[in-house]
Design a protein around this nucleic acid. Structure first.
Length: 295
DNA sequence: GTCCAGGATCGGA
DNA sequence: TCCGATCATGGA
């Protein structure tokens, strides 16, 4: 595939050329990350033709993204684009191939449903988030709704994240370990506070290694490691591995995905048919089903 | 007041 | 192994 390249730079907006599709709105509104929203900061507007600019914080940096349907625009330095955002946005992965693989894994009505899901979700990319942020975020997500997940995460960042030029970084495990379980509870985390605090303590003191999860030989091994943490089960571990560890074969099954499988795939869908891109197929189905529910 | 939210844990059958 | 209750909280 053709490597993503910077075409121009105007008012700190980098214009990026890349292969495949990219939708800013869908990528940041499909429930995989919780720290991005409509760009309200006073910065130069993105070049003409752009809509749905979003901004947020990842890897300890404030950043904004926008697109005009064909090109992507990144508000940041070329150095950060190559060092961080290229990978973060999945521009280094072959989505043309991925989409083909996902569709060809199915046939008949199953393939038609997947085709519809892909069209509805076109341009969604699986973000490569920081492992701890993804793990912690999806621990918070359990039996919770997205607006409140965002609210709890923002409270955590404001209270225990490092202050950066615009906003706050996601708090480190050490910072949350020091904060204590009661403090995390008081920010609105509810029964999840003990899960967050215990995981933070184990990581901070070295009893649990995120890099060991990253470097396991098999996916199953990584999943078992994460599930050894209290408050981390099949769904949370799969989301963390997919969005935080770049393990795109993960296929998180929540109530929405289970509904898709029951209603559109006759009650059974084997994720392994999508190979290394099961997670992307899952995200298409998730967005598709949630959109259908909104209309 | 009731129900639900990108679930996981625990106790009892 | 399976199943239901329970876990905080806030918005609909």
């Amino acid at each position: 595939m053709r490597a993503p390249t910077i075409l121009s730079e105007i008012n700190h907006w980098l214009e990026i050329s890349f292969e495949g599709d990219f939708s800013t709105a869908r990528t940041f509104d499909c429930g995989q990350c919780f720290r991005f929203g409509p760009c309200s900061e006073e910065i130069p507007p993105p070049p003409t033709g752009c809509k749905n600019a979003v901004s947020g914080i990842a890897y300890g940096r404030w950043v904004a993204f926008a697109d005009n349907g064909t090109h992507l625009f990144v508000y940041g330095s070329p150095e950060d684009f190559h060092a961080i955002w290229k990978q973060y946005l999945g521009l280094d992965a072959d989505y043309v191939h991925a989409n083909r693989q996902i569709l060809h894994a199915l046939s008949g009505t199953s393939q038609q449903h997947m085709q519809a899901a892909l069209e509805a979700s076109r341009g969604i990319r699986i973000l490569r988030q920081e492992p701890w942020e993804a793990l912690c975020s999806f621990i918070i997500s359990q039996n919770n709704n997205i607006p409140r997940i965002r609210k709890i995460i923002e409270a955590l960042c404001r209270a225990y994240g490092e202050k950066i030029p615009v906003g706050y970084a996601f708090p480190t495990p050490a910072a949350l370990a020091r904060a204590g379980q009661d403090a995390i509870f008081s920010l609105g985390a509810g029964f999840r506070a003990s899960y967050i605090w215990e995981a933070a303590c184990k990581i901070a003191c070295g009893e649990f290694s995120l890099s060991q999860v990253q470097n396991t030989q098999t996916y199953e091994e990584a999943r078992e490691l994460l599930c050894s943490l209290r408050g981390v089960g099949p769904k949370v571990s799969a989301c963390a591995l997919l969005f935080g560890f770049g393990k795109t074969e993960a296929f998180p099954i929540d109530v929405w995905i289970q509904r898709v499988i029951d209603v559109r795939f006759g009650g059974k869908l084997d994720p392994t048919v999508f190979g290394n891109w099961a997670g992307l197929a899952q995200q298409y189905l998730f967005y598709y089903e949630r959109c259908a529910a909104c209309q």
